[in-house]
Nucleic acid binder design. Structure first.
Length: 229
DNA sequence: GCCAACGTTGGC
DNA sequence: GCCAACGTTGGC
């Protein structure tokens, strides 16, 4: 079976037929070796379970991907939620993430956790649907592929720098939740103390893989039932 | 296509 | 270790 690839903004690759591909994604950054510095806090790389001091069971995520064609080193990095649905088993590997903070979030993901599939860098950015983690972090093979747009010559096979997870389509949102709508709530919540007051989409602008609190996740799901504001 | 935000690189 | 230059992300 082919492996799907996707790209996300910062992350994944293209959706190719199968493998081959180059994936494209944008976030590539090269980094120093140990740089895990920017991570959120201090967790440099804890690979395993993460800090669970208790609340790690309910983690939710938001993952960005570009639904419109864009070439990166000659490779189309487009990967929309429709592209994910078209993959075998509606499953794809989220390759191409080249940012330490985003990578560390990938490594913290656990089986069956849910993530919003966010469409970025497009006409109408927003949340298109829900996916779930069906394979926990493992080495991103595209870092070793010379003609992949996210090739990282500094990464060694015996100590891979970048990771990816597999995600499976769960469902489309009942209606598309636009960035503009989310922003309206975010701004209101900053003053009222509402659930989106610290949403990473606005406070960590360029992060392609980001965590959501249960409150953020549930509030966004509740928007599906309402009229777009 | 522009450009603000912000992460990375590399000189010193 | 500081910080200016540079590159990327991604909204608009």
């Amino acid at each position: 079976m082919p492996k799907p690839r996707k790209r996300l903004a910062g992350a994944a690759g293209p959706a190719g037929p199968d493998n081959k591909g180059p994936a494209g994604k944008r976030t590539k950054t090269k980094n120093p070796a140990g740089a895990s510095a920017t991570m959120g806090n201090s967790s440099p790389e804890k690979t395993s379970a993460s800090k669970d001091s208790g609340k790690n069971l309910s983690n939710y995520w938001l993952m960005k991907s570009e639904p419109e064609s864009r070439l990166e080193k000659g490779v189309d990095v487009k990967f929309s939620i429709e592209d994910l649905k078209a993959q075998p088993k509606q499953t794809a590997c989220w390759d191409g993430v080249r940012n330490y903070q985003a990578r560390n979030f990938l490594r913290a993901m656990k089986l069956e956790q849910e993530a919003f599939f966010y469409h970025s860098n497009c006409k109408e950015p927003g949340i298109a649907g829900l996916v779930k983690i069906v394979k926990e972090a493992y080495p991103d093979h595209t870092q070793f592929e010379k003609n992949n747009p996210h090739y990282d010559p500094s990464s060694k096979e015996d100590n891979p720098k970048w990771s990816m997870v597999d995600v499976q389509f769960v469902r489309m949102m009942k209606r598309y939740i636009t960035l503009a709508e989310l922003k309206t709530h975010y701004q209101a919540h900053k003053t009222t103390g509402g659930p989106l007051k610290n949403m990473a989409l606005f406070t960590r602008q360029r992060l392609s893989v980001q965590p959501l609190t249960p409150e953020e996740f549930n509030f966004i799901l509740s928007l599906e039932e309402k009229e777009p504001s």
